[in-house]
Simulated assay, not measured.
Amino acid sequence: MKKVSKMIQEEGIWAGLNRPGIDMEEADIVVYGIPYDGGVSFRSGAKEGPAAIRNITYTIPPTTERWEDLSSLKILDLGDMEGASRDEIFLQAEVAAYSIAKSGKLLTMIGGDHSTTIPVLKGIDRALEKPFGIIHIDAHFDLCHEMGGDLLSHGSTGRRALELENVPDTESIFFVGVRSVESEELAFIQNHDMNMIKALEVRRNGVEKTLETIQSKMARFEQIYITVDIDSLDPAYAPGTGTPQFGGLDSRELLDLLYGLFELPVIGFDVVEVSPKLDDSALSVFAARKILTECWGHHQRKNKNIRGKYVAE
């Protein structure tokens, strides 16, 4: 992996859990960033997300909100995928995702705009021999064929995913929290069988019922990837993002959803669209950090069989 990324040497990041230089086989979780936001259709700044998130992980304790100890976790941060062009950056990201998926370690990617999920899914697709499911938590569908002539825009992530060999049909993706739709996307979803739960439905039905629906639909997959756009949260909780939409999930709903979703066979996840320059309070950066570390706790809990089914608390 040294050939495809700038290595992160700081042992202090990620609550002191980073183990720079260890072999991937020794790691529990492998992380990398894609500081790219050239795929946006509106406000930029998400390329600054990976560095901003890492920078607030030096002083946090290696624990979760449920008081679980993460100190035994070994994190391998591969650094950021960098290059002179998008093609070069995305190729590195795809190669990294392929290697991590092959290793069986939990893949964690930090974007960047949502287009950065495209090469990650391509790498996973090449690595796997069976179909896999995708849970897309977002204010938007990202199902446009292209935006402004760009097939790799942040509004085309879901559409490119549906073209992958191991994503067999439109019901392989479950969209959660969506509350904005382009005219092209509306026509697409009206003509295809889709799995989706609007943000307003999460609020009306509750997290527990929402999880039951998602889990029943995605149970057919032995491997699942979760992509979290920070704009799935209402702007009150994460204002620092390029295309915020009112009426989103609150922080408790999102954290509880992720807790339950990790009962599924999750092989990787990402957090994207965090734009620090659009949020003087840094709320969005802190939200992303919380999502990352809590998901690592869910992964550890599942591997240790500490707890079973999600129960509302």
Results as ranks from 00 to 15, higher is better:
P61T: 10
L283I: 05
G206M: 07
S99D: 13
D69R: 06
E82A: 09
I110M: 08
V31Y: 02
D256V: 03
H136S: 01
G247C: 14
M147R: 15
T108V: 14
V30G: 01
I89H: 05
T227Y: 03
D113S: 09
R204A: 14
S153E: 04
A97Y: 05
E163K: 14
Y237H: 10
Y36G: 02
I53S: 01
L254A: 04
R54E: 04
E182T: 04
I60A: 05
E94H: 01
L107K: 00
I13F: 03
A96S: 13
E129I: 14
G206R: 02
S153R: 07
T108M: 14
S216T: 15
V285Q: 11
Q300T: 05
G39Q: 06
I53Q: 03
R159V: 01
I134M: 05
I230L: 12
T64V: 08
L91M: 11
I197E: 04
N303S: 12
E163C: 09
I291Q: 03
G112P: 03
D250F: 09
D279V: 10
I226C: 02
I118T: 01
Y32N: 07
F175H: 15
L278A: 11
V202W: 08
V207K: 03
G158C: 03
G123A: 08
T117C: 07
S251G: 12
Y32C: 03
E82G: 04
A312N: 10
T59P: 01
M7A: 12
V272S: 08
M24G: 13
Q223N: 15
L121A: 04
T243R: 11
I29E: 02
S103R: 07
F42Q: 11
G148N: 14
C295S: 15
P265K: 09
L17T: 01
K47N: 13
R307H: 08
G240W: 00
E273H: 10
T64Y: 05
L76I: 06
S5M: 06
G155Q: 02
G104Q: 09
G148L: 08
K304Y: 10
I60H: 01
F262G: 01
D150V: 03
N166Q: 15
Q223G: 08
N18P: 09
L257K: 05
A187F: 15
G123I: 04
W296P: 00
E182Q: 12
L143R: 05
K209F: 09
A15N: 05
